[in-house]
């Protein structure tokens, strides 16, 4: 009975994360469509989507250290956070293709192929696709051990996304430094973990 109620609460919270998670995108779109995003609304909307993709990646990566270091177990929300990161990356890329570059493929394709800034961002998005596709129980069961190995790709994706974000501006600003600093910490934790004293799983 208690277990069933807890599952229900978790289920509702899971859906709640999706609903809340899409608020920045909806709010920014609404502002953009009604003239509230300043002189270059497309750029502002595009950057907001990219930034939130990065933020959801950071939250996804924070679940494990929170559990291991602080004993806070939010594992049940990780899938929703990871999928939000994917959807934001997909929206960011779609806005780049449409509102920003106007689907002018003869300039878009060379940029994706040749410009490291764009190539890195595109690669990060592509790496998230198999992770999103396999983020269901069936895939976890079918892939077995390989599921974990496949999902290590998130480390590569977040590293690429961080460099892409740093390359987006002419000089690094404090906001960028803070986000990328968090990513460095979260990836560094994974590298250092084998060296840390092992905690017994609770």
């Amino acid at each position: 009975m208690a277990a069933a109620r807890s599952a229900l609460v978790d289920g509702l919270t899971g859906w709640g994360i999706y609903v809340v998670g899409f608020v920045p995108a909806v709010a920014s779109f609404w502002l953009g469509a009604t003239g509230g995003l300043g002189a270059d609304p497309v750029r502002a909307f595009e950057q907001t989507l990219g930034l939130w993709a990065l933020r959801f990646l950071i939250l996804t990566l924070a679940i494990t250290p929170l559990r291991q270091l602080a004993g806070i177990n939010l594992l049940r929300f990780r899938r929703a956070l990871g999928l939000l990161a994917f959807w934001y990356a997909a929206m960011h890329f779609t806005v780049y293709l449409t509102l920003d570059r106007g689907l002018l493929w003869d300039t878009i394709l060379p940029d994706i192929a040749r410009r490291p800034f764009i190539t890195l961002g595109f690669s990060a998005f592509v790496l998230l696709i198999p992770l999103a596709v396999t983020s269901n129980r069936l895939s976890i069961r079918r892939l077995g051990k390989n599921w974990r190995r496949l999902h290590w790709l998130i480390y590569v994706a977040v590293a690429l996304a961080a460099v892409h974000y740093l390359l987006a501006t002419k000089v690094v600003d404090p906001g960028q430094a803070a986000h990328v600093g968090l990513i460095v910490l979260l990836l560094g934790y994974r590298l250092m973990r084998p060296l840390l004293p092992r905690r017994r799983p609770a």
């Binding site: 003239g35 497309v42 300039t107």
Partner: peptide, 24 residues
């Protein structure tokens, strides 16, 4: 002659066509 990080072949005219229609 492109910027190493982005193409200089096109530009977005600020204030033109607003949010939809890229103004490129």
């Amino acid at each position: 002659v492109d910027h190493p990080r982005w193409s200089q072949a096109t530009e977005r005219r600020i204030g033109e066509s607003g949010f939809f229609g890229s103004g490129r």
